[in-house]
Computed example of a mutant assay.
Amino acid sequence: MTTPFSVRPVHTRRDRKRFIDFPYTFYRGDRYWVPPLRMDVAKTLHPRKNPFFEHGKMQLFLAEDAGGQVLGRIAAIVNGMHLKKYADGNGFFGFFECVERYEVAEALFDAAEAWLRAQGMTGVRGPANPSLNDTAGLLVRGFDRRPSILMPYNPPYYVDYLERYGFSRAMTMWAYYAHQKFVRTDKLERGVALVRRRNPTITLRTLDMSRFDEDAHAVLDIYNDAWSDNWGHVPMTEREFARLARDLKQIVDPELVYLLEDDGEPIAFVVSLPNLNEALVNLPDGRLFPTGLLKLLAYDWLHAFKEIRMPLMGVRKKYQGRGLDALLIHETVVRGQRRGYVACEMSWVLDTNRVLINALEALGGVVDKEYAMYEKAL
């Protein structure tokens, strides 16, 4: 006999803390879950600290048993920038976690859908935490390896729960993995040499930390142009991007961020990050204080971060189709190896992006994980 439970909205600071705390208890002992820093999660959910709330809104829900033990959580989300671009009536769900009881998941989805209907939404899509410019997607294949930095992880039964509830797959996304033992650079190098000959005015440089803000704004401008026609793309506001850039500045390796310029004008970029999950896994409670910082300081930084993740790449529309993406991938992989990184995850890649998929497979990349976004009419 299953114990009774209830679902209710989060209104107090205490409930918000319990909402944040739940995954650290739920995933305790799971060798593949990587705990995010609690302070980062708290900032993401805080209306005064996350610029998302300047155009969006969110309602959190908790599922609890009769004794007050948390059994699950979910967020119902209205993304104003998404609605401004698409006017499709789609709201979102995110931050979903649930014990292995379908009736609990069903009740959480019911609560999120009811709130979204009250906001005038006619559909729901997710998971997005809280947008596709943040951690997003459901892991549906590849549960036997830890996710890379800023990529989601969840139990396999979540797929069944969403589909039982009536969600269908809206988009498939892939995480490609390239290890130096299997990377085939010969074919790529020939292609890159051809690209360089055909584009003699285009030069490549790394991120200039002395003018970080200027380079960051160039990346934002290219991103919003290059990705504007991609599925689900929502432009970042200036303040959203400033928050992202500020966070990334603390961890970025400038030798792994490349900009292509045509006569000095930035036209393409690629950003790769050291896989900090290799260190964060040592902080199972997600806290830096009082002991977490000591654990990180004791980490073998000299030999740390053998892998990188390439989360962002963009080429201005008028320069697309010239093979510049192959040039950026080549530089990332080759220079990454020179800096001691042995592998690179490129994620996520939309299932519809055949040009990029072909380039990654020609390089020797293989699908390491499969993610998906789901949607449902309300």
Rank of each mutant, 00 (worst) to 15 (best):
E100T: 04
A107Q: 00
Y86V: 10
G89Y: 10
G68E: 11
Y86K: 13
F96S: 02
A111N: 02
T122A: 12
T122W: 10
I74L: 10
A118D: 13
E103C: 08
A118N: 11
P127R: 04
V41A: 02
L37Y: 04
G123F: 00
A75E: 00
R38K: 15
R101F: 14
K57C: 07
E103L: 14
G94W: 05
E64C: 13
P51K: 08
V70W: 12
F109P: 00
G123S: 13
T122L: 12
L62C: 11
F52V: 08
V124E: 00
S131C: 12
P35T: 03
H46T: 12
K49A: 08
Y86A: 08
E106Y: 05
H46R: 14
E97I: 06
F109G: 01
H82G: 06
G120P: 08
H55E: 14
M81N: 15
Y86I: 14
K57T: 15
N129L: 01
N129Q: 05
G120F: 10
V41K: 05
G67N: 09
F61K: 10
K85G: 04
M81T: 14
A128I: 13
C98T: 11
R125S: 03
A128Y: 11
N50G: 01
V104C: 02
G56S: 04
G120I: 10
L37G: 01
V104N: 04
L60Q: 04
F96C: 09
